Computed example of a mutant assay.
Amino acid sequence: MADFRRGMLALAERLPPGEELVQRALEGFPDDVRGLAGRCRIIRTDARYGGGYYSDRNEIELASGVETYEGLGQVELSACHELFHYVCWNDLRYRPDEDQDFPYLRRAVRDSRKLLAGFPRYHGWVTGSFLRQGDHANPVEYFADIPTNFRDVAELPPPIRAHFAPLIDGSAPPYEMRRVPEWSFTSQERELAMFQRWLAGGE
């Protein structure tokens, strides 16, 4: 254990610092997104795996061991994912949707149910990767996963594309999420099982 810890500390000295990792993870995203997420602090720990975004501290921890066991590309993807948790919490366009339990995001997913066949990469990712995470396949994680995994909005069904495009390609927001929506979901429709059913294309 002592040798492993020394190895992780030595590795951490050679890894990109948090500030550089933020820039690399967000390369290609709109300037306003990079500016916002660039405020987030990433703390590199000497752990073998793990980490996450901590909303109470408004910062990210990311294990140095990710590079050792999964490669530098994976740590950039992991950082990107966690940074979009930060964006969801801090972007004034999107935070109101989370505060209301994601009614706008849920509607985009629901309205995409019948369109999945036309977007094979997205459909394959949803059914072959995202939904296999069980309870982790929820709106919060979905929000962070879409910009991380889909840099080309053309790969997304139109309702989902419109919802995320401001974060991915800088398009104008399709609606004002600070407004209380004119529609509502039943308690059953707000359950995780229904969200996952809609993602898979079910009624």
Rank of each mutant, 00 (worst) to 15 (best):
R57S: 13
I60H: 02
L62K: 03
A63T: 04
S64V: 10
G65P: 00
E67L: 08
E67A: 13
T68V: 12
E70S: 13
E70N: 10
L72Q: 11
L72S: 11
Q74S: 13
Q74F: 14
V75F: 03
E76F: 03
E76N: 06
E76P: 00
L77H: 12
C80Y: 05
L83P: 00
Y86Q: 05
C88E: 15
C88K: 14
W89D: 15
N90P: 01
D91E: 10
D91I: 02
R93T: 13
Y94G: 00
P96S: 06
D97Q: 08
D97E: 09
D101I: 06
P103H: 08
P103S: 08
Y104G: 02
Y104Q: 04
R107I: 02
A108S: 15
R113P: 00
K114F: 07
K114H: 13
L115T: 07
L115N: 04
L116P: 01
L116V: 07
A117W: 08
F119P: 00
F119C: 04
P120A: 12
H123Y: 14
H123V: 09
G124I: 09
S129N: 14
L131T: 09
R132D: 09
R132H: 12
R132K: 15
Q133Y: 11
Q133I: 02
Q133M: 13
N138T: 08
A144I: 06
I146C: 06
I146Y: 05
P147K: 05
R151C: 03
R151K: 13
D152F: 06
D152L: 05
V153K: 07
E155K: 10
E155D: 14
P157G: 06
P158K: 05
P159T: 06
I160C: 04
I160L: 12
R161E: 08
R161C: 02
F164R: 07
A165S: 15
L167Q: 05
L167C: 06
L167F: 04
G170H: 10
S171H: 07
P174L: 07
P174V: 11
Y175C: 10
E176V: 08
M177D: 01
V180P: 01
V180R: 15
P181L: 03
E182T: 13
S187G: 12
S187T: 14
S187Q: 15
